[in-house]
Design a protein around this nucleic acid. Structure first.
Lengths: 115, 115
DNA sequence: GTTACCGCTAACCTTTTGTATAGTGCTAAT
DNA sequence: ATTAGCACTATACAAAAGGTTAGCGGTAAC
């Protein structure tokens, strides 16, 4: 019984780790935000995400794609055009973002009050 | 109007960053879990958090204290005894953890199904 | 025909984060 | 007297994350 609850707890901790992993890091949120605002092209996203390098943006987009948040479409015209778009699945993050933002704001206010 | 919503959005992103910062990293969750289970002493927490080094645990506890999640009490007997306990404020994380765990589990299942 | 934009990638460097090992000063048990 | 536990800190190192610079092959504009 105690064992089961420990196992349960560990699997919850791992689930939280997974969640933190996919939205963590310095840029994922910003890239998602930029896509939410309707930016679709690589260089466009880079310009909007001030400070990000091409290398890092490339990696972030790949990870976001692997996690099913982003769809990458190559239009084989000349010149070749690549489009990035958020998937419907990306919307499942909505509530999480809300919860995080709310708690974060509350916490910042608290820390500020204490000084 | 567009400007205001951009500003709002940026401040939300920062709030999310703050939230991720205070619960992020490899050990914070595990340490909190150990404290939840009632462990109060430094070495006890270290034993339970398998793999953590004293240096890292020391840092984590300091950060958790700074963020108001942990109370550190020194009992000046001989030998000196130090007690760590979660504060009431730490409970405000409850809903966030739930949301994270839920989303994380859902996401893991989804990724698994796709292979 | 040089310049500039597009969507990247490679090589390398720095910063951040976490690990390993040892050791401090204290007490208490063997 | 040695050993072990407590609560740490110091030093050094390794791994991961992120940043910098340069360049590729293409098109399109001047």
């Amino acid at each position: 019984m105690a064992e089961r609850s420990t196992t349960e707890c560990t699997s919850k901790l791992n689930a939280i780790d997974d969640a933190l992993y996919v939205i963590g890091g310095k840029w994922k949120l910003r890239v998602i935000a930029s896509l939410r605002e309707g930016h679709k092209r690589f260089n466009e996203i880079q310009r909007v995400s001030v400070g990000i390098s091409a290398r890092v943006l490339s990696n972030e987009l790949k990870e976001l794609e692997m996690n099913g948040f982003v769809k990458r479409t190559v239009h084989t015209q000349t010149p070749v055009v690549v489009e990035y778009q958020l998937t419907d699945y990306a919307d499942t993050l909505g509530d999480l973002f809300l919860a995080l933002a709310e708690w974060g704001e509350m916490h910042r206010d608290k820390i500020r009050r204490e000084r």
